[in-house]
C-alpha cells in the first residue's frame, strides 16, 4: 500500500526540489523578523521618550512653552544648589537603604524556611501567598498598611488593648519604611528562595557532619552560596524603593517627600518638564550608583 500517500508527498517533493540547496534550513530569514514589531513598540514608546526626556533635562524652562531648543545645565545646577531637593534625595536614599536592609534580614529566614519545606503542597501554597500580594498592586497594599497603622488602626487598637496610649504612626518616616518593606519583601523572598532551592541540601549536611551547628551552617554555608540571589534581590529592592510612589504619598503624607512623587509634581502640576526630567535622571543615576556600590559591598563582605 502507501502508493497514495507517497505520491502526494512526491508532488510536494517536486516543488521542494526546485528551491535552493537547503532542506531543513530554508526560508529561515523571515523568522528573524518576528521580534521586530515588539522591538519597534518598545523603541518607539519607551526608548525614544526616554531620549526625549534626556534632551528635556538640558532644556531651558519657560512657562507655557515646550522644547525651547536651548542647551543648558541649569536644571542640574538648580538641583545641586537647592537644599530642598537634596534633602528629598537624601530621604529617598535613606529610606531605600533601610528598607532594603530590612527586606534582606526578613527574607533570609523566610525564603530559607520555604526552600527547605518537605511538604510540596505547603511549599507551593506559601510561594503563591508570597507572590499574590506582589501582584495586588501598590495601591491596594498601601491601603492595607493604612488600615494597620492608622490612628484607630489595628496596631493602635492592640496598643490600647494592652494599656498603652495610642500614638501616631501613619505619616511618619517609620511608617513609610514599614509599608515599603512589606511591599518589596516578596521580591526579595522570591529571588532568594529560588537560589536557595538550588543549594544542594547535602552541602549543609556535610557542614553539620563536620561539626558546624545549624546557625553556623546557615551563616557560613547557606548565605555565601545564596550570594548571587542576595545581590540580585538587593539591587531589585533598591531600584524599586528609590522609585516608590504610592507608599510615600499615602503613608508618608503630604509633608513627606521622596523623589518619585516630586518628579510627578514637577512634570504634571508644575509643568516644569526640564527640571522634572533632570530630577528623573538624577534619580536614575543615583540608583545605578547605589546598586553598584551595594553589590560591591555585599561581594566584599562575602569574601571575608
Amino acid at each position: 500500500m502507501g502508493a497514495a500517500s507517497s505520491s502526494s508527498l512526491a508532488s510536494g517533493a517536486a516543488v521542494g526540489a526546485s528551491r535552493t540547496r537547503s532542506a531543513a534550513g530554508r526560508r529561515v530569514g523571515a523568522e528573524y523578523l518576528m521580534p521586530a514589531p515588539g522591538m519597534l513598540l518598545v523603541a518607539l514608546f519607551l526608548l525614544l521618550p526616554l531620549a526625549l526626556m534626556l534632551r528635556f533635562s538640558f532644556d531651558h524652562f519657560s512657562p507655557g512653552e515646550l522644547l525651547t531648543g536651548a542647551f543648558t545645565f541649569e536644571n542640574y545646577q538648580k538641583f545641586f544648589s537647592d537644599g530642598f531637593y537634596q534633602r528629598v534625595l537624601g530621604t529617598t536614599v535613606f529610606v531605600s537603604l533601610v528598607t532594603t536592609a530590612l527586606c534582606l534580614v526578613m527574607a533570609l529566614p523566610l525564603s530559607y524556611y520555604i526552600s527547605r519545606l518537605d511538604h510540596p503542597r505547603l511549599k507551593s501554597t506559601l510561594i503563591i501567598l508570597v507572590v499574590l500580594p506582589l501582584l495586588m498592586g501598590n495601591a491596594v497594599r498601601t491601603a492595607g498598611w493604612m488600615v494597620m497603622l492608622g490612628d484607630r488602626g489595628v496596631v493602635n487598637s492592640i496598643f490600647v488593648a494592652l494599656g498603652f496610649s495610642a500614638r501616631t504612626i501613619l505619616y511618619t518616616p517609620t511608617a513609610v519604611i514599614i509599608g515599603l518593606t512589606s511591599v518589596l519583601l516578596p521580591f526579595m523572598v522570591i529571588t532568594l528562595q529560588s537560589v536557595m532551592e538550588g543549594i544542594d541540601r547535602r552541602i549543609e549536611e556535610a557542614a553539620l557532619n563536620l561539626g558546624a551547628g545549624p546557625l553556623t551552617t546557615f551563616m557560613k554555608v547557606v548565605i555565601p552560596l545564596a550570594m548571587p540571589g542576595i545581590v540580585a534581590g538587593t539591587v531589585l529592592c533598591l531600584i524599586l524603593s528609590m522609585n516608590a510612589y504610592a507608599t510615600p504619598v499615602l503613608i508618608g503624607g503630604p509633608k513627606f517627600h521622596m523623589m518619585a512623587p516630586t518628579i510627578y509634581d514637577q512634570v504634571t502640576q508644575g509643568a516644569n518638564w526640564p527640571f522634572g526630567s533632570a530630577l528623573a535622571f538624577v534619580l536614575m543615576t543615583v540608583t545605578v550608583i547605589l546598586t553598584i556600590a551595594s553589590s560591591l559591598v555585599i561581594a566584599r563582605m562575602s569574601n571575608r
Binding site: 514608546f45 519607551l46 525614544l48 521618550p49 526616554l50 526625549l52 526626556m53 528635556f56 531600584i239 524599586l240 528609590m242 522609585n243 510612589y245 518619585a260 518628579i263 510627578y264 512634570v267 504634571t268 518638564w273 522634572g276 526630567s277 528623573a280 534619580l283 536614575m284 540608583t287
Partner: peptide
C-alpha cells in the same frame, strides 16, 4: 522605573 517611564511617555 514607572514614574520615569510614565513621565517620559507623557512628554512624548
Amino acid at each position: 522605573p514607572g514614574i520615569v517611564g510614565g513621565a517620559a511617555i507623557y512628554m512624548f
